[in-house]
């Protein structure tokens, strides 16, 4: 179950326009250690595409994504 994924840091990115969620996530992930998990919540529909693409290009891993109404939650493992 996705709800049970533990995270080491949370970012509330609700209401931010593109590309701010990605900008903040790419900074936020530097605050955790490799192997730790960052939880990010956005309301920007573009992030559904942006986050996986960013993870690919930056060498990080998205463990899980789930949507709840407007809100989209990502669990990202710092791998690089």
């Amino acid at each position: 179950m996705t709800e049970q994924l533990n995270s080491d840091k949370e970012l509330d990115l609700k209401g931010l326009p593109c590309p701010m969620p990605i900008v903040k996530v790419s900074k936020g992930i530097k605050d955790i250690e490799i192997g730790q998990v960052l939880k990010a919540v956005t309301t920007d529909p573009g992030s559904l595409n942006d986050f996986p693409a960013w993870a690919r290009s930056s060498g990080n891993e998205i463990l899980d994504t789930h949507q709840n109404g407007e809100e989209i939650t990502f669990y990202i493992k710092r791998s690089a």
Partner: peptide, 14 residues
């Protein structure tokens, strides 16, 4: 940040 965003866009294309 700008390079990161550009790389993200390119990755999306791939």
């Amino acid at each position: 940040i700008l390079t990161m965003l550009a790389d993200m866009s390119i990755s999306k294309g791939e």
